[in-house]
Structure formats: structure tokens, C-alpha cells
Design a protein around this nucleic acid. Structure first.
Lengths: 194, 194
DNA sequence: CCATATACGGAACCATGTTCCGTTTAACAA
DNA sequence: TTGTTAAACGGAACATGGTTCCGTATATGG
């Protein structure tokens, strides 16, 4: 009888390099296709673009919704992380504005997701929370720093602002982006201290 | 050469009786299944429940979305028509309240549709308009009559009220109906003249 | 260089919408 | 009543998309 009690500390073999590579490739392919072809692209197409078989894809993402959720999280991370970068690059009030536009762009790519989110699939259940816990602190620190300069109001709740921009991005289909752009512009203007 | 110029007036053969029967049956089956099994039931199941083949179903409703739209219109008609019935049965203020609850029930069954509506399928494009042109006049006349009794405010825009109740019905999933019920109760109470 | 756990690819399976077409039948007229 | 025929019917077959299976290939540790 082989010793099947694990040696306590570092146990399992490392993840194989090709596995990691493929996972990254699938995520990248999915991200691109979701953006260009919409949330409904066939899993086959994603696998093909990533240069792997569907089996490989399904090994990592047992359900299509798992892949969607993973891409979503990845993009949330990227957008949230940018807050710190912008804060280190621009003066506080400018950093805030730059990030709000970045966030607006993020939201704009999430049209299809919005409906999927409310589809009841448990794979999506955790996403709203992930969204909030990633973005709220990021925006909070930008707002705080900007308010400290005296150029921006100090009575804005980060989550309110996140939602407001999100809502503004839903309105009309035709000529939609231009309309959204104007409204967000207005809102950003409203943040300035008079 | 047969005379193929139509005798101008009544031309085409009548619609066959079985055709009409089957159309009604399909609509009835679809209505039931949409309510009990959700908007995503398979077309096959609807055809089976109606006792017809899928070919028959598709003859009348070339696209699944056509069937969905037809059921929707049918239910809008039924709900709107009830306004007149209630108005003839109850005193104006009571008729208004009864109908608002009826409308709340109608909305409650439309959860799945809401997402479908924004799916871009052209079959659904006309539905919002149909919704409004059916319900707005119905509610308007109820409101008007109720306001004339002096028991109900006279400054309510019918469409605002329709939307308000619609919005109240979207909120939380868990314990949702009870919550919605309380909110609508409040809103109806708010209609009364002090 | 071997042994093997792991990962890979893609054919096959299942569910769903949609199309096709041979068969049946209601409606009309002789 | 009966024959004719346009219309309608049923359901197999097709297209597409998610998911599973499993024989083959290979990275990793010794």
C-alpha cells in the first residue's frame, strides 16, 4: 500500500506549463470575441481562436458561464487596477476624471452581460459583489484625493457614482454612445466644486 | 386557360376551420407553458401540448419570437379589456384599484420577457408601443372617472403610474412578491385624495 | 530516459430552433 | 354525393450550440 497521506506541506505536482498557457490563451480569445462578436459567440469559436480543442477549454471552464464570469472578473481587475496607476500619473482631480472615463468604457462593453447577470445562473451570482468590492474602494480613494485638493465635491458616495454612470449608459440604442458621452460629461462637470 | 382574374370582391377561400382551431390551441398552450415553465420552453413542447406538429406551429408563427409576441399581445389585450369590465362593475375608485392589482399581476408574469424585449429581435420591436397604446387609455379613463368622484388625486399621469408599478415589480428576488405587494399597496394608498 | 499524472483534441451526444416535403383534409362546385 | 384542389398537417431531418467522453500526447519528477 503506497503512502497516500500527503507529506503535509507542498504536495501536488505543479500545474503544467502548457495548461497555464492555454488558460491564458482561452481567456484572451474569449475577451476579444466577447467584445467583437458579442456575448453569444459559440464556445467552439473561442476554442478555435485560442488554438485549443473544446475539451481543453471545458477542462478549465466547466460551463460557458464560468468563462464569461472569468473574463468579467479579469476586466474588472484591469479597470480597478488602473485607478492606482492613474493616481500615480496625474494630479488627483485629473486622475479621477480619467478613471471615470475608463470606467465608462468598461461599462459600455457590458451590454450583453447585463441581461445574462439576471439570468439566475449561479455562476453569475457572485459577480455583482465582485464588481462592488473591486470598484468601490478604487473610486473611493480617487474621490478622496480629488476632494482633498478642494477642486471636487466631497459629498459623493462612490457607489452612487458608479451606479449613476452605469445607468446613464443604458438609455437609448440609436445614437446611444454620443448621448451617454454627453450625460457622463455633464455628471463629471457636476463633480467640480463651485 | 382558367379565369385567374379574381372576381374583385370576396376572393380567397375562407381560412380552414382546423387552422383556426389549431392557432387558438397553440396560443393557449404557449400561454400556459410560458407561465408555468418560463419563457424558454422548447417549441416542441408547446406543439405537443397543443396536440399539433411543429410544422403546424411554424406555419402560423414562423419564428419562436412571433409566438412569444402573439401571447404577449393577447395578454395585454385581456388585461386592458378588463378595465372596461371593472368600470362597469364597481364604483370608479374601486374599479381603479382592482385594475391596478390586475395590472400588477400581469407585470409579475413578465420577468422573463423583460430581458427578451431588449434582445434586439425585430419581432419584439413593436411591443413597447403596443403596451403603451393599450394600457395608457385604459388607465386614463379609470383615473379620470375616479378623480371625478373626488376620492382620488387628479394629477396622475397614466403612463407614470404604469411605469412606477412596473419598476416596483423588478426589485429583489427573494421574498420579492411580498415586497412588491407592499410597495404597490403604498402607491395605491398615495393615490387617494387627502 | 522512464513512468505516470495531467492535459489535449475533437468526435460524439444532446437539446433546440427551423425547414422540408409527402400525406391528409376542409371547402367548394358539379 | 362526390371529385378536385388549395391549404394545412405532422414529424423526420437539418443546423447550431453546449457539453461529455475517451484515446492519445506530453510535461514533470525521479
Amino acid at each position: 500500500m503506497p503512502n497516500d497521506s500527503r507529506p503535509e506541506g507542498s504536495n501536488d505536482r505543479r500545474v503544467r506549463a502548457d495548461a497555464r498557457r492555454n488558460e491564458d490563451g482561452v481567456l484572451a480569445a474569449a475577451k476579444e470575441l466577447f467584445a467583437s462578436a458579442g456575448i453569444d459567440v459559440a464556445v467552439r469559436d473561442i476554442a478555435a481562436k485560442a488554438g485549443v480543442g473544446v475539451g481543453t477549454l471545458y477542462r478549465r471552464f466547466p460551463k460557458r458561464s464560468d468563462l464569461v464570469a472569468a473574463v468579467f472578473r479579469q476586466e474588472v481587475d484591469a479597470c480597478a487596477a488602473e485607478a492606482a496607476i492613474l493616481a500615480a500619473t496625474y494630479p488627483p482631480d485629473q486622475a479621477l476624471i480619467h478613471w471615470l472615463w475608463r470606467y465608462t468604457g468598461f461599462i459600455a462593453t457590458k451590454k450583453g452581460l447585463a441581461t445574462a447577470l439576471h439570468s439566475g445562473d449561479p455562476a453569475y451570482a457572485a459577480l455583482p459583489d465582485y464588481f462592488r468590492t473591486s470598484f468601490e474602494p478604487a473610486l473611493a480613494s480617487l474621490l478622496e484625493a480629488a476632494a482633498a485638493t478642494g477642486k471636487v465635491r466631497d459629498d459623493i458616495a462612490p457607489y452612487d457614482l458608479l451606479r449613476a454612470i452605469g445607468n446613464l449608459s443604458v438609455a437609448p440604442d440609436a445614437e446611444g454612445t454620443a448621448h451617454t458621452h454627453r450625460m457622463v460629461d455633464l455628471m463629471i462637470d457636476g463633480l467640480r466644486r463651485r
